[in-house]
């Protein structure tokens, strides 16, 4: 598929980053903190898909598997341990391990795009079906009952490391989530600026050539798949701490579809695109949830179809291209104008 014409990794726009940080700092004064928190969690989730889809060309149709696994891992571990630092780490580690196994299986097997779509989809479905059927006392991990369809309620949420009494919620959780998002953004930027990112983009553009240059494409793909799963797991863990309940719905196909829509609408081949896509469409989703006239999935589905047909590279890349063209046009015009002025002044001189 055609991703953006942007071959490079893009530079970090530090001014933009500083402004975004400032914006996130003051946002709670204007917007509802609870809403902002979940929007940023979705952004983090979309960012994790945007990195591997937009830059390495790996599309997972079941990215929700890692999000849900992160959430469930956190819930189960925090019920058993009580203190949330180890569960937080586990919530990244366990999805990453699963992704490493599945990724290695797919990439070393040289499985094509479409079959990869099927495998990732089926993995999510297996987990959904399994978690959905774990009602009853037989399914418990330590102190935590998996609870089947009803999920796990009432587990200890995130706390200040080392002190289980100091739980983080409300505005505190907002700042934790915002910091996590900014850090992950910087991590992605760093990855892309390093040789690792350059090989990934090379694989996206032409896998055979990268292999001929001596890089092992499966190794790099597995690595980025694992990294993105860890990030999705982190998003899941934060979501669990925000919602204070985890349900099998986290593994559903709808959840996977949503993050794909966030990412593709925002724009492939950028990091800001998926984040903005998640914030914009997430807001829309929450607004739609407040009324019953138009069904939520109706609108999201229509948006996905329209974007694939009309705007296949997404909003942010389209906007960047437009600005670039406009900049080039303005430059050409001012050059022409100055040439005219020069001619005129020469004419006057003669």
């Amino acid at each position: 598929m055609s991703i953006s014409s942007n071959f490079g990794t893009g530079r970090t726009n530090w001014l933009g980053f500083a402004l975004a940080t400032l914006g996130l700092l003051v946002a709670p004064a204007v917007f509802d903190v609870n809403t902002m928190t979940v929007l940023l969690i979705w952004s983090l989730f979309a960012l994790s898909l945007g990195l591997m889809w937009g830059y390495a060309g790996i599309l997972s149709f079941g990215h929700a598997a890692y999000f849900g696994l992160g959430a469930y891992t956190f819930a189960v571990a925090s019920m058993n341990i009580g203190e949330s630092t180890v569960p937080l780490l586990l919530a990244m580690l366990i999805p990453a391990l699963l992704a490493a196994v599945i990724g290695a299986m797919m990439f070393y097997g040289r499985i094509s795009d479409v079959y990869m779509g099927v495998i990732t989809l089926v993995v999510t479905l297996i987990m959904f079906k399994f978690i959905n059927s774990t009602a009853g006392d037989a399914y418990r991990i330590g102190d935590a009952r998996l609870g089947g369809f009803n999920g796990i309620p009432a587990f200890p949420v995130l706390n200040v490391p080392g002190d289980p009494e100091l739980q983080i919620y409300g505005i505190g959780l907002y700042y934790v989530v915002a910091a996590a998002l900014l850090l992950c953004y910087l991590l992605c930027r760093w990855v892309l600026a390093s040789w690792f990112g350059r090989v990934l983009i090379g694989i996206r553009e032409n896998e055979a050539r990268v292999e001929l240059l001596g890089y092992s494409a499966p190794l790099y793909k597995t690595a980025v798949f694992t990294l993105c799963a860890a990030m999705a797991g982190l998003a899941g863990c934060l979501f669990a701490s925000w919602a204070e309940i985890v349900t099998p719905g986290l593994f559903s196909l709808g959840q996977s579809a949503e993050v794909i829509i966030f990412t593709i609408v925002g724009g492939l081949g950028t990091l800001v695109g998926p984040i903005l896509g998640a914030i914009g469409l997430g807001m829309l989703k929450l607004l739609l949830g407040e009324q019953t006239l138009i069904d939520n999935s109706l609108l999201l589905g229509a948006i996905l179809v329209l974007v694939v047909l009309l705007l296949p590279s997404g909003i942010v890349p389209t906007f960047l291209r437009w600005r670039q063209r406009r900049g080039a046009m303005l430059a050409a015009r001012s050059k022409a104008g100055s040439a005219r002025r020069r001619r005129r002044s020469q004419g006057e001189g003669a």
Binding site: L298, L299, A302, L304
Partner: peptide
Amino acid sequence: MIDTMLATWGLSLLIVGLVTL
């Protein structure tokens, strides 16, 4: 192929929404 999969996934959500309505 991948674009077709994405577009038809969008269609599937759309149809679910319509039938729910």
